[in-house]
Design a protein around this nucleic acid. Structure first.
Lengths: 330, 330
DNA sequence: CATCGACATAAGCGAAGGGTTATCAGGCTG
DNA sequence: CAGCCTGATAACCCTTCGCTTATGTCGATG
């Protein structure tokens, strides 16, 4: 039982195919097959059987697949631990949902870096299957939407920020003139602007979206800021964060359109505002690194909350492709 | 970084010596040295340095030592998981302090086996350094004295039984005739009988013992039952479990000696009865096997408590050397 | 029936892993 | 200073790992 064999098997189990695993690893298919054969012989378990639809794991194979990823992750965490032991700075790998990364990450991590004595490197990435990534220690902590309850055994979840989303449109948009609640039918007939990953079913707005009677046309831009700008140009509607859009928004149908320089209006839509929560999630029971625990405590402080709602821009957050890299200093 | 290398390094770190580790593994010393050298090269860390008194770990070495045992244990737990996956019975490795093993284990596990649908194999052993053994998954659950608080991160502790210890002597013993509290000086001048490991500092009675002004002569027999028999023979005193000795005990100095067939008396000693607690300890956060969690819940039930105080003898508990092997069926 | 897609097996090869014995290098200790 | 204990190195061996290419087997599909 080698770490390399376990890594290979974990990939096979995840992809459900030897060929696919071989392709992903950039090696030939017999290499994968022989790694699996070695595990089979050592554990005296076929691990999986060929079936019409790919492969199906035996009970033993399922047990091994669960553990394999964990062991490989532990090995890599150990490498990092040894490398950083004794050094004052450490690296913290943070997983964040898109909205948190865009609107809060910069200021929060800037403040976190100032509060810490040692330097902290924070890498923010977007990804799915948060629970698995945490369990396999690919990341130390996740900030944003709550992972599915079923997947959260072994994880510690702490809520740290309550947000609301409201439907907004340009003050000049036809829908802004509607008196009273906006009919869902009319709302669904105009394009909806959004940032990346806005309607993930793990979020409250995602579940709200799933309950709609029909799907509108979604225009997904690269950020919610861009989406809000497009909406301000009169091109459609958007489900915006209330504390972000708030300063530019007047209530529609209240006779105060255009007052105070507001260029956006809130559309009164049924079941809005949508209230959601951001959670800090990490391994439980002393398995999370100390820095992750510090960050988890930090985001629940009043100072961090104030930073998240503050209107001033991000600092120290540079965006590269689909990743945000935050270099913090103290 | 191989599991074998990690196993070797963990042993070196624990024993503080390459030679000792080599002897323990039954291999030559250069074999150990080269395993360590491989880790050194791969992790780019000296891991330890030679010092006048054996070796001293570097920060990186300390980090590795912590993880190494965990990884090896996880690997072996995985082997067991795969072997038992799909089978209805599973094996549960239980660590127990001597007093629990002698007075409660048999009946508790007997009852636990009956309550379970599948068969359960339980192996009870005595050992020290409970926290490490649990963390490295050498055992699934520990029943008895509470591990030191400092060592309990990552562990889940649940109290399940409150016991008391009282000082007893034969009704014919000279100390039984003393009126009022027994002077500590006189108590210390007679032999104290005890079972194995009776004064472990992790137990409440151990701490009480540590606070005594001087040490009495301790006669450690192979079981508390034997010790109690010796005391009944008039040979000395003993700190006995109240619910075990209770039926044979009259209160000394109360004028009721010999009443009701009691052949033992309780000596009124300062700070007695000593009240202690048995704890069920296991890995926290979903890392403990399901069977361990079931047992942890089971021991806190009223039925389990009733079995522990019941006067009827053990069942299904066969003692072999220093180990108890309990084969349970349903 | 022929073919194709996907896993298994065989043969072979270089590189580590894991072990040995023999020898060297330092720091205590008598 | 001589010995001694302990770890590091060297030289060597054999096994296993991890990879390749070539070929076999089996079921689904046209």
């Amino acid at each position: 039982m080698t770490l390399s064999q376990l890594r290979t098997f974990a990939l096979v189990a995840r992809l459900g195919s030897l060929r696919a695993a071989a392709a992903a690893l950039g090696i030939s298919e017999p290499a994968v097959s022989s790694a699996v054969a070695a595990l089979r012989a050592e554990l005296r378990d076929p691990l999986f059987t060929r079936s019409p639809t790919g492969i199906t794991l035996t009970p033993g194979g399922r047990a091994l697949a669960e553990r394999a990823g964990e062991m490989v992750g532990l090995a890599e965490a150990t490498r990092r631990d040894v490398a950083h032991a004794g050094a004052s700075e450490s690296e913290l790998r943070v997983l964040a949902t898109a909205a948190f990364a865009e609107h809060a990450a910069g200021r929060v991590f800037d403040l976190f870096g100032k509060a810490r004595s040692g330097a902290v490197d924070v890498i923010v990435e977007a990804a799915d299957d948060v629970a698995t990534l945490l369990r396999e220690r690919a990341y130390d902590i996740a900030l944003g939407a709550r992972p599915a309850l079923a997947a959260s055994t072994g994880l510690e979840l702490v809520p740290f920020f309550k947000y609301q989303r409201i439907m907004v449109a340009s003050a000049r948009h036809p829908l802004a003139a509607v008196r009273g609640p906006v009919p869902i039918g009319r709302l669904l007939s105009v394009p909806w602007f959004a940032g990346p990953g806005s309607f993930e079913p793990s979020t409250e707005e995602g579940r709200w979206f799933g309950r709609l009677p029909a799907l509108p046309e979604i225009v997904e831009l690269t950020s919610e800021t861009d989406a809000l700008a497009a909406v301000a140009g009169g091109e459609g509607v958007m489900l915006a964060l209330r504390h972000v859009a708030g300063r530019r928004v007047a209530e529609a149908g209240s006779g105060s359109e255009g007052a105070g320089g507001a260029d956006l209006v809130r559309l009164p839509v049924a079941d809005t505002p949508i209230t959601g929560m951001w959670w800090a999630t990490m391994l439980d029971g002393g398995r999370a690194p100390a820095e992750a625990r510090l960050l988890q405590r930090f985001v629940t402080t009043a100072g961090a909350t104030a930073a998240m709602v503050s209107p001033t821009g991000s600092r120290g957050l540079s965006r590269r492709g689909n990743k945000f890299h935050v270099a913090l200093w103290s």
